[in-house]
Nucleic acid binder design. Structure first.
Lengths: 240, 240
DNA sequence: TCATAACACGAACATTTGTGCGATGTCAAC
DNA sequence: GTTGACATCGCACAAATGTTCGTGTTATGA
């Protein structure tokens, strides 16, 4: 099935390109490829790029910066696993063993990023997410699957909620929440949005960090000073 | 929400970018934009590009040639015509470039609990008595989808990795890891398994907490005192 | 009418980035 | 040992490309 025999390097390069494009939505430069694949010479990268092009796995436009793109169809047919459909690499055992339980998939829009100080105004700026949509298995969120949206966490502002830079939080849009819910809340005065557990105390609300470490203290505010943007239903961290 | 009021030029530019990307699989340069939209000055293009970026309609990477991409979601929500009748375009483009849009589900065995002090004695192949299965969308783990298993975190022992009680960690079983990988490591002497970022230092390994809070300090051990159980590829937190 | 902001121009500039080419190393075939 | 295809290296070079800055133009409102 594969008459293609790519060298180790070529495979690495291809994989990197795929990942990079996937991540940035634009192609890497020859030098960027060289760095990550540990090739010191740009011409060597170019050499291998030409090979890949001969195989039809990538397309290149002469003299164009980053003018290279992946030929996905060819890539899929090549039998190399980078096509990201995962078909070939899947563990067989599991699939056989299980009946086709039909888990519903959810498509959740990734609306932007959230950082302390920035309200969730659904205005993504510079940082971009590859997908635009987050795919979830239904079991990964609690409750109804409507009004869900996702945000990428930027910076360590949510550390006290044990949410790290780069994490993705899935929220359900709602203005109210129950005691004990983790919510994204906008705190007037602080001009800051954070993730906290919500507790009511009469006319006050207590915003409690999820992180039990004592360095993170609850915040208490008058109820009208806190605006709830949504309830957090899931936190996802994908490590590379 | 934001009411977008794009100038004629900005609309033209946006339209051109969409078309161009669709056609070439890479973004146009400032000058190319200028030519087709009849703007003689690159800085004017840049000026308008900034506007578009402020609206979140495009994303730009500073100093990167052709480092610009379209924010499809925002475009869609903006209500601009080409976003709507671009529906087909958009869909097609996505499929071409990102064949994984058809996300596969992964079924990962949940093998038990992890807590400080308890080694991860399980390897997917050996022990085969999972408590359950975790369903994931393929995009939620990086790399090949084999040898994956899941563990439920018990207690706050992983707090320094920003992993809370009840979280689920997805790991790929492997004995080695690269610098910077988050791994589940068994530390001899401490008789303890934790999640940490791995860094090598000659004959030593440094296990660095994911939580940048200074109360959590790196652990340094001789390399042979640390056994890697697997690499963490994802962390999932489902809130009730 | 003046001030101000938004928009536009173009040229100089600094980087980024692809290409070309001679020299070197490897390895199997002759 | 010699030859020659392959793969690699460094490096110089030129083209491609984003940025900055001083200046001009056009609205709009006080």
């Amino acid at each position: 099935m594969h008459f293609l025999n790519l060298s180790e390097r070529q495979q690495e390069i291809l994989r990197f390109i795929v990942d990079f494009v996937h991540l940035h939505h634009y192609a890497p430069t020859i030098r960027q490829i060289g760095e990550t694949v540990a090739i010191s010479s740009t011409s060597v990268v170019k050499y291998n790029l030409n090979k890949l092009q001969e195989y039809g796995l990538i397309l290149r436009e002469r003299d164009i910066s980053r003018g290279l793109s992946v030929n996905w169809e060819q890539l899929q047919q090549s039998g190399y696993p980078y096509a990201l459909n995962g078909e070939s690499v899947r563990g067989r055992q599991r699939e056989e063993r299980l009946p086709e339980a039909d888990v519903e998939r959810l498509r959740v829009p990734l609306l932007g990023k959230i950082a302390a100080g920035s309200p969730i105004a659904v205005t993504p700026s510079e940082v971009y997410d590859p997908e635009g949509w987050i795919e979830l298995a239904a079991g990964m969120v609690a409750g109804p699957a409507d009004k869900l949206f996702a945000l990428r966490v930027q910076g360590d502002s949510m550390i006290d909620a044990s949410v790290l830079d780069g994490d993705i939080v899935i929220l359900r849009h709602q203005e109210t929440a129950h005691d004990g819910d983790m919510v994204a809340a906008w705190i007037e005065g602080d001009e800051e949005t954070t993730l906290k557990y919500l507790h009511r105390d009469g006319a006050f609300v207590r915003l409690v960090p999820a992180n039990p470490n004592p360095v993170y203290q609850p915040i208490v505010r008058a109820a009208e000073q806190v605006r709830i943007n949504g309830k957090v239903v899931s936190v996802i961290r994908v490590l590379k």
